[in-house]
Amino acid sequence: MPSGAMDLTKKEKRIVLFLLGIPLFLTAFLMFPHYEEFSAPGEIVEVTELGIQGHVHVTYVYGGTTKNYLEKLLVWGRLAEVDVHFQPVSQEEAIREEEIEEEVGSAIQQWGIANALEVSGYAAEEADAFEAKFEEIEEKAAKYQGSSFGLMVAIGLVEEERNIDFSQAGQYRIAGTGTIEQDGSVGSIAAVRDKVETAERSDIDYFFIPEDKEDYPGEGMSNQEEAEQYVKEHQLRVKLVPVASLDEALAFLETLP
């Protein structure tokens, strides 16, 4: 490489260092460890996409943890249209969440699917059919995280098992959220506001939420209080249906005109 023509004076060296410093500084800033949880409204999916011959919908939202400003910027860019919100978390908390998800995430989902199959009474006398359905749902639900679809999966399985259409040939759009426990009770979930917002945007008529005002296990507002407040504040059209158990949800659906 020729050197003479490209030799730098002291002033030029300072300018070059400054110019090189700009990209370096911006990169360091974007890659600097900074943890934030994010959540944004997602979409509703008919239970048929999980291999269940039902007519109700499960609700999923976008969520996760960003580890630096670059990831935050990318998430913000990807989800800008759906109003994504961020909440700072400590590095320890974020790593712990990630480890939990890695270690027991799929187990929690399997547990939710098994509960839904059991409480819905699906193929109660046929172990093979039960097993086959479990595997089918598990495979198709692999792209989602968590078990908050438990209640709606259970309702869908009841529709399939009893050959019922709770949507009454598409007259009603029904969705919901909530885990399903072994005794058929409905458990609390995360990001309820975003799920209600998702339902509203998807023109859902009735949206099941956990009835957990009295026994919310977390801190702060229960799912029920938060969802009801959100609907009131934003004057949403969707009708919330708080339920404590699968039986309550089925009873409500059976009373629809």
Binding site: L19, L20, I22, P23, L24, L26, T27, L30, M31, L70
Partner: peptide, 21 residues
Amino acid sequence: ETVEIGISILSIFLLIVTFAL
């Protein structure tokens, strides 16, 4: 992977300055 992301970002910024120059 993380190193690659860092270098890629640096390359993008560097490319912008290089184009300007």
